[in-house]
Design a protein around this nucleic acid. Structure first.
Length: 565
RNA sequence: CGGGGUGUGGCGCAGCCUGGUUAGCGCGCAGCGUUUGGGACGCUGAGGUCGGAGGUUCAAAUCCUCUCACCCCGACCA
């Protein structure tokens, strides 16, 4: 390809709206263009990278036994109503109606469609296991697209679904996919961390995410400094530690004028925050719930949502709290009735807690569970934080940020039950198919590669996914020898099957070198009167400082070898 | 949805507070010339409904009202 003809121009200036590295570089390299919030065009360079990523993914999926197919983006909403996931996706579902006022959605994922499809085509245990996948555009009306391609509303995703007869089969499919995913990310030059994850709106039980460590990552990863424990903060657990405060003492009322927050109460009564109980109020699908948790901890809303099995969860407004007769600032589970009370299991880690008295400016000392109050549900709903103890060993938890590039779920039979996807086992009994699902976002993967591999000059593409392999960079093109040598080498390299970008522009060396660095093509080959004097060209890897001279007549062969490596 | 911010040629911005001739600057783009091993220079030129609607005024990019879009911080996910 001749650079002068390539659609898409490099930009010198940094686009104002971009503040993550990949976003800036993708725009500056002329690879993407934003049409609307979270909606992008991919220009030829980006498209080539995506195609390369796609080829790697396809290869690994096929090797793992996957069969590629293609399903509709346009889906009847009824299918989503059957699984109830129209509610769990909520406003994230792009929906529209056709001319007959039929409600349709644009597929954000394809569990429903594929399960419906499989249920009609696989009836016997002999038809299983199955691994089916597609690489296709997904639509999700994200509340807030961000970071360029990191989070968008229309994106290409590889989604594979596994169908097995039982849990053991699912475990095997899951393992195959974990392995394939590791291969994919490695081949894309991306180091990843496999973390335990929450399954969110997709549903299901066990779930893992592949994370790329990056400052700009949206996810917080909690991991142990001494064992292998790694989890998304949404899911992470921690040792809460015991609060040793002796034998239960009798309840005692204390006046606490002006003290409302945990900090104020703890200062006023001179007790550590871990010796208090915090009250937090949420509205779960319209119903007010009372949450109590040790004062030094925070509620993990994801965990809370999961145990409440609700689709919408938000902090209650002050008005809503007051309306339900609770004294904000002095709220307490003690003596409360008519409201659902959920407690974090941290309330059992100590004795003689301080909490509100449900009476203005008054708190209670020496509250003990279960002596003094009842709750509807006790569970681990606390946010794990760096510095706390590892739940698996004696280590300390650390925190980093990451970009989620892949997510795998053990779905189980949730979807197949709802959609009646059954198979007949060897003894003739009808059973639900056991499912798993596995996704990779291609654009996000491309962005993550850039986040991981760039410098202040530009992108550094791993050769496996680079849009071109060689940046052929002749200087002083008006010099006939340079021009002839460049054209000849260009032809030879292309004949060798190499992907070459020829910078045939009449730009100055500085401009050409800077663009070469920005575009991040793995190998730069410079031809100038200076190199030709020695019958040579200059070869330089994008990621390295030094270059070396290669004889012009050997150049094509040598480059072919380099690329192979 | 809550909070913060921005909309002015393809890109980055100034002008707005304190209304007043042809709306500027840099990059980029086109032409010519001189240059050029890490983003050269000169000359010439093209390109703008000042996000949109309404209003105030003799006069609006500038003031007022409404509205739309986009970005950033939080609740969602590949």
């Amino acid at each position: 390809m001749r650079l002068s003809k390539l659609f898409g121009k490099t930009q010198r200036e940094i686009p104002a709206e971009a503040d993550t590295a990949s976003h800036r570089l993708l725009i500056r390299a002329g690879m993407i263009h934003q049409l609307a919030a979270g909606v992008y065009s991919y220009l030829p360079l980006a498209w080539r990278v995506l195609k390369n990523i796609e080829a790697i993914i396809r290869d690994e999926m096929d090797k793992a036994g996957g069969q590629e197919l293609s399903m509709p983006v346009l889906q009847p909403v009824e299918l989503w109503q059957k699984t109830g996931r129209d509610a769990s996706f909520g406003k994230g579902l792009f929906s529209l109606s056709d001319r007959r006022e039929r409600q349709l959605v644009l597929g954000p994922t394809h569990e429903e469609v594929i399960t419906d499809l499989v249920s009609r085509n696989a009836q016997s245990y002999r038809d299983l296991p199955l691994l089916l996948y597609q690489i296709q555009t997904k639509f999700r009306d994200e509340p807030r697209p961000r970071g360029g391609l990191i989070r968008v509303r229309e994106f290409t995703m590889k989604d594979l679904y596994s169908f097995d007869t039982d849990k053991e089969g699912l475990d095997q499919s899951y393992k195959k996919m974990l392995n394939a995913y590791r291969n994919i990310f490695t081949r894309c030059g991306l180091p990843t961390m496999l973390v335990e994850a929450d399954s969110g709106a997709i549903g299901g039980k066990e779930s893992h995410e592949f994370m790329v460590i990056a400052e700009s990552g949206e996810d917080e990863i909690i991991h142990c400094d001494s064992c292998k424990y790694e989890a998304n903060a949404e899911k992470a657990e921690s040792m809460k530690g015991r609060v040793d405060s002796g034998q239960p003492l009798p309840l005692e009322k204390v006046k606490t004028p002006g003290s409302y927050t945990i900090e104020e109460v703890s200062n006023f009564l001179k007790v550590p925050q871990s010796q208090t109980l915090k009250a937090v109020f949420y509205i779960a699908d319209g119903e007010l719930v009372f949450i109590t948790i040790r004062g030094d901890l925070e509620v993990n809303e994801i965990k809370l949502k999961n145990i409440l099995h609700c689709s919408e969860l938000r902090i209650a407004s002050e008005a809503e709290v007051i309306e339900s007769g609770i004294i904000a600032g002095s709220a307490s589970p003690v003596g409360l009735s008519g409201i659902k009370v959920i407690a974090d299991d941290s309330i059992t880690t100590g004795t003689n807690f301080v909490a509100g008295a449900n009476k203005a400016d008054t708190h209670l000392r020496n509250i003990n569970y279960p002596r003094d109050f009842k709750i509807d549900l006790i569970a681990n709903i606390a946010l794990a934080r760096a510095g706390e103890g590892c739940p698996r060993c004696n280590g300390k938890l650390l925190s980093t940020h990451g970009i989620e590039v892949g997510h795998v779920f053990k779905l189980g039979t949730f979807v197949s039950e709802k959609l009646g996807a059954l198979y007949t086992d060897a003894s003739g009994i009808s059973r639900s198919i056991v499912m798993g699902c596995y996704g990779i976002g291609l654009g996000r993967l491309m962005a993550a590669v850039i986040e991981h591999s760039h410098d202040d000059k530009g992108i550094i593409w791993p050769p496996s996914i680079a849009p071109y392999q060689v940046y052929l960079c002749p200087l002083y093109l008006e010099n006939p020898e340079v021009r002839t040598a460049a054209e000849k080498l260009y032809t030879e390299l292309e004949a060798q099957g190499l992907e070459v970008l020829l910078d045939d522009r009449g730009e100055s060396p500085g401009v050409k070198f800077n663009d070469a660095d920005l575009l991040g093509i793995p190998i730069r080959v410079t031809i100038s009167p200076r190199t030709l004097e020695k019958g040579s060209v200059e070869v330089k890897w994008r990621g390295e400082k030094k270059s070396k001279l290669v004889l012009l007549k050997e150049a094509a062969g040598r480059l072919k070898e380099l690329i192979k490596r």
